[in-house]
């Protein structure tokens, strides 16, 4: 097992982070379209997408069975499965892997729930360090307007209702998003997250993201890297 910072692959791992409603998924999707048009092999990896672990996570959430510790562990199980299955193999093949949320989401959420910062960082030592990690910074009232305006129902854990701060789910969501935002802000320096001002136009943000990613592409192959070894 290689630990954070030790992996070396021909491919690149680009990840986006930010609170709900920061517009990060839109930006990642636009980035992917551009990279494909440029001829690169692109692979998308979504948060919470491991089918095997998903059933357990969903049941735990639906029945409110998760404590801060088991919430943290089940999400680490999911990300480990994604990394072993969907991130490392494409990186070895020379793909640009685009991940919507990564370990920093876990750090922000779990620490907001009261898990020790050191513990959750140790837990995710198996993770591949991203080539570039973008953090879409947005004022809370802007993101809340986007989310609460567009969506019918907030979910229990998503709103941080398990923290029992208030009975009002919308108020709990506001408070919880604020706590997560604070954790992200603390991580900017610790992990060298690249801050993108998410109040600017979509086009301006995308141009900035592309110009930063472009600098990493010099040695990225446009075809699969297959080392068949000695004859």
């Amino acid at each position: 097992m290689q630990v954070y910072g030790e992996h070396e692959f021909p491919g690149k791992l680009i990840i986006v982070e930010g609170i709900d409603g920061s517009g990060k998924s839109t930006q990642l999707s636009l980035l992917g379209q551009w990279l494909r048009r440029e001829g690169y092999m692109v692979f998308f990896s979504e948060w919470n997408s491991s089918p095997l672990v998903k059933a357990t996570t969903s049941r735990g959430k639906k029945k409110h069975m998760l404590t801060p510790t088991t919430f943290s562990l089940i999400h680490s199980t999911d990300l480990a499965d994604r990394i072993e299955r969907h991130i490392i193999p494409p990186l070895k093949a020379g793909a640009i892997v685009l991940a919507d949320r990564y370990i920093y989401t876990a750090f922000a959420r779990d620490v907001a729930r009261g898990v020790s910062p050191r513990l959750v960082r140790d837990l995710y030592k198996f993770a591949v360090e991203p080539t570039k990690a973008f953090y879409f910074r947005v004022p809370l009232d802007v993101s809340l307007k986007r989310i609460l305006g567009a969506r019918a129902a907030l979910k229990y854990y998503e709103a941080g209702m398990d923290l029992e701060m208030t009975e009002d789910i919308e108020e709990s969501f506001r408070l919880f998003q604020g706590m997560i935002r604070d954790r992200y802000e603390e991580m900017v320096e610790e992990f060298g997250l690249i801050v993108i001002d998410a109040t600017r136009s979509i086009e301006a943000q995308q141009n900035e993201v592309r110009s930063i990613v472009e600098r990493e592409l010099a040695d990225v192959p446009k075809h699969a890297v297959v080392n068949l070894g000695p004859e």
């Binding site: 562990l73 089940i74 198996f126």
Partner: peptide, 14 residues
């Protein structure tokens, strides 16, 4: 995978 399985067991134990 082995790491995911190890963490699944840790979830069970916790």
């Amino acid at each position: 995978g082995p790491i995911a399985l190890a963490l699944f067991y840790a979830t069970d134990l916790a």
